[in-house]
Nucleic acid binder design. Sequence first.
DNA 1: TATAAAATCTATCAATTTGGTAGGGTTTTA
DNA 2: TAAAACCCTACCAAATTGATAGATTTTATA
Lengths: 137, 137
Amino acid sequence: MLSHKAKYALKALLYLAEQEEGHISKTIEIADGANIPKKFLEQILLDLKRGRFVSSKQGKFGGYYLIKSKNDITLAEIHRLFDGAIALLPCASLNFYERCLDCKTEEECSLRHGLMIIRDETLKAMQNITIASLIKK
Amino acid sequence: MLSHKAKYALKALLYLAEQEEGHISKTIEIADGANIPKKFLEQILLDLKRGRFVSSKQGKFGGYYLIKSKNDITLAEIHRLFDGAIALLPCASLNFYERCLDCKTEEECSLRHGLMIIRDETLKAMQNITIASLIKK
DNA sequence: TATAAAATCTATCAATTTGGTAGGGTTTTA
DNA sequence: TAAAACCCTACCAAATTGATAGATTTTATA
């Protein structure tokens, strides 16, 4: 399941993608428009900024705007930024790999192979869902 | 990600599936064989029993055994029993459906449609991973 | 240059979940 | 009749989640 943070991030990106080119959105606008607690959204936007999905302008008339095309922001990336691994176990993960401590040897891990298949299929599906694809209903 | 409970459940089922037909396995055997904390495994086996994946025989020389074919136990079922919904949001879930409270109307929920696509693909993949498929490496 | 508006930074917090452990009680059967 | 298993209830510490609060910095413009 997606955390609230990841869900809010997607909704915020969606909101930004729906604004006209060059428009800068204040946090409060996004919060009201997408129904997200404002203070919580602040943190999320900073995370999105660190992830280079959005950029910001400080001071009066400042705000946030997309710096990545809505066609290039995928569900997979947002999942990884906020919720981490897409695989079902760390030992089957590409980006968040860790050994399973309860498996004596890596080869012996009976689950790993099957879970890598799931990971590949889920990842492929998640890479196909973009902010742009979510807009056109 | 899978919880430890779900992971241990899969490993326990795998252990049982690898025993010869008619064999009954004691908790301690499974715990040692699959490297699972024994007391924790007890609870998991009870859950698996309630879920009608295994049955048990009490008393001396008692233990657990599969009552469902290893070809018919899927990752999807185990995920749902221990970790709940497969969908990324409750509003996109088949078996654990709940409305998103932060969406004014259901149709308005911009994420729902995309997440239902992911759910369908993930579910299909998870239904293809069975205990039997995990055994043949 | 003062000031208002906005992002940014740093803490804190309560509630829930997770990953167990402890310690029995109950039932079966050699 | 005692051993060996299942079964049950409660508890616990640590981590995570979903926020909130308040102070600080930056910037446009009157």
